[in-house]
Write a protein that binds this DNA or RNA. Sequence first.
DNA 1: GCGGATTCGGAATCCGCTTCCGTATCGAGT
DNA 2: ACTCGATACGGAAGCGGATTCCGAATCCGC
Lengths: 188, 188
Amino acid sequence: MPENAARRSRADAERNRGRVLQAADELFAEHGDQVQMADVARAAGVGVGTVYRHFPTRQALVEAVAEVRFAEILRHAREECLPLPDTRQALAGFLARIGRVHEEGRGVSSAIEAALGDTEPRGQIGADLLAVGAELVERGRSDGTLRPDANVADLYMIAGAVAAISRNAVGDWRRFIDIALDGLGPRP
Amino acid sequence: MPENAARRSRADAERNRGRVLQAADELFAEHGDQVQMADVARAAGVGVGTVYRHFPTRQALVEAVAEVRFAEILRHAREECLPLPDTRQALAGFLARIGRVHEEGRGVSSAIEAALGDTEPRGQIGADLLAVGAELVERGRSDGTLRPDANVADLYMIAGAVAAISRNAVGDWRRFIDIALDGLGPRP
DNA sequence: GCGGATTCGGAATCCGCTTCCGTATCGAGT
DNA sequence: ACTCGATACGGAAGCGGATTCCGAATCCGC
């Protein structure tokens, strides 16, 4: 079941792409930014040339790994958080997943920051995440979980903060989520 | 007035160190991470070898620049924030200075993050900043500006978040400061 | 003003990302 | 099943930037 026959005709190429991506994910997670392209190639059992065939640049590889992580965050948000009846819990669960992913994949995370200067995803997944966030914030505003002037940008900003805190192990990000959501709650 | 005669006997060395530091500060602030050691040397009017004599590594140079910025934050905190009678204003002013410094020196800031994986200072200045923060938090707890369980680690964490947000231009960090301080305020 | 110690300058070296191209493999058509 | 053009592979060479090295220049106590 080739995802797109016009784009990728050969099966071995697809398989190698997957191997490289997985090897990169694991190595980045374990050794962080200091992983070299040659290491990735060796771990994936291919030559450097092959790595570059699929990911034209080190940064592109890092982004591809990042996209996998963000896709997971999006899936979790849609399937686990949106259904929760308590909006506060939904928001906390969403942010907590971001914290956890960045904490576990600290290496990936810092590699992304180093490569992109920003930890948030772009493209389709980014847009979808924003949409889910907007929905949660809207719900929060109408059910009184959030103050009336709360908006997606606030959530986005807090998400970035959670990512930075967990990535750098600068403190207890779970506590931070509580503080931030209290701050975004209705004014007394 | 040699700061330490035993450590630095020759005056020209001291002068060159200063030139390099200043050139690096300006270049990092303007061009960010992409500045090369040779650029710094040229801008400072010295050879690369001289840069390396004073800062054994690119990272060491970045850290030295960072220390200058953090010293400025510390000075501001002590002289401008501590004297403020309103603790909330003092905390906001402290955090705002962090935001501003990171916003203006975005290049330095990301270079630091790239080099250290963390944006907070170490050593004496770091300890002093922590002490000032502790004093502010203590005041806030006793005068009711902050909730009873607030602690320095919370402030430290929020400071890290402000730094990350302003560095990455991920949102309005002034608004974030308000939200975070509301969250750290007394529970209703 | 002299001499040893210290610092300077920048060419040479090292290292990691990226490119290039001859070789190996795939798979559509027969 | 076999052939052939197209596609992908591997890894050596190219390149750019950080770091090292060492002879020349400069400083400072005497």
